[in-house]
Design a protein around this nucleic acid. Structure first.
Lengths: 196, 196
DNA sequence: TTTTTAACTGAGTAGTCAGTCAGTCTCTAT
DNA sequence: ATAGAGACTGACTGACTACTCAGTTAAAAA
């Protein structure tokens, strides 16, 4: 059973790496096959088209992401909602570093183009963004209950904060601006934004 | 003289539209030629390679952007530095809307990939980001002088604020989250971040 | 053992695309 | 008028790529 899935899994892993690092258009199916140690035809046995392979990669990444956050939050207690937000910011930054080889998937434009005429792709992306923003939102709601965070529209503020961290890590990944050491200022800025 | 440049300009304009809307890889040179009303070979007469055409497009956009900001700021007076920042945020948002057909250029991943082994591309991008961030930085410095903005690292805060607006307009352009109406909250958040 | 089914293979196909080139057109200078 | 230069053309080429398919191998069922 494990062996049976193993080639399919190898394909999925190679495709994830390559689509993320090199991009969808510039990665050929032969390249994925070579990287996975598999014949060209084998890919098409498991995934009908390149697009379908991409969707499988995206879905897989979505599940990984959601699992990462749920294990991080599982059983963890925070003094205040504000502290939770600050921790989440650090966690997100470290997560992007750790999963650098697949996070680029979300920072490329292709998935959003595909989402326009592929409902499955759109819903994967929506689930990803929704779950990430919801995590931040819950921190804000908690902070508003314990008095550490001001009375602001929670969902919107969650989106703003998420957009900010994500924008920072993306800008960093461009290597145009070296803004790694500015994460402390980023977290401080979010604190000022939210504090009562 | 004008007529002499006209086909080259038509090519540049079509390439800008197509590279922005469809992306570099998915746009063929024949497509650009057709759109510009020109024979395939004509493009290669003016631009040796596709990459060179892209660089010309990027440089052109860089100049447009810088010109837009300098005419916006030219002779405009702001009561306080904080007001200047708020105005700049609104201006940036309206600019992205107005130049929607070319702003996507910067929101795609290709230029940053190219920048890795093409110094000209890298320096165009650096100039773009540098000039945008510098505009915000000057507002912050002014605000710190007139007492409307707190004593924070100006350059870093400028980068944070720029990253935030740019991230918001980008997320909006993905059509995953409809966050157009949240621009007021965005501006309010920046105010809280900066205010003394 | 034999049969059946699923997994896998890689050479082949049809299509696309960046870039070339031999030649035509247009305009200017003489 | 004519020569010459620069602008322009589009058919062509070679390289690449997503996908197919006829056939092989491996594994499970009978």
């Amino acid at each position: 059973m494990k062996k049976k899935l193993s080639k399919k899994e190898a394909i999925l892993e190679s495709a994830t790496q390559l689509f993320s690092q090199k991009g969808y258009r510039t990665t050929s199916m032969s390249e994925v096959a070579r990287e996975a140690g598999v014949a060209d035809g084998t890919i098409f046995y498991h995934f009908k088209t390149k697009e379908e392979l991409f969707l499988a990669v995206l879905e897989n990444f979505k599940n990984e992401l959601i699992a990462e956050f749920s294990t991080y939050l599982d059983g963890r207690e925070f003094q205040t909602g504000l502290e939770k937000i600050e921790d989440l910011l650090s966690f997100y930054i470290s997560l992007v570093n750790r999963l650098e080889d697949r996070f680029l998937l979300l920072h490329r434009h292709f998935p959003y183009t595909l989402a326009k005429n592929n409902p499955a792709c759109k819903s994967h992306l929506e689930e990803i963004y929704d779950s990430l923003i919801t995590v931040f939102e819950q921190g804000i709601v908690q902070g508003q209950a314990d008095g550490s965070i001001d009375d602001l529209p929670a969902r919107t503020m969650a989106m703003i904060i998420f957009t900010l961290v994500d924008g920072m890590v993306r800008l960093y990944s461009y290597h145009i601006y070296q803004n790694g050491p500015h994460y402390n200022d980023l977290i401080a800025s979010c604190r000022r934004m939210l504090k009562k």
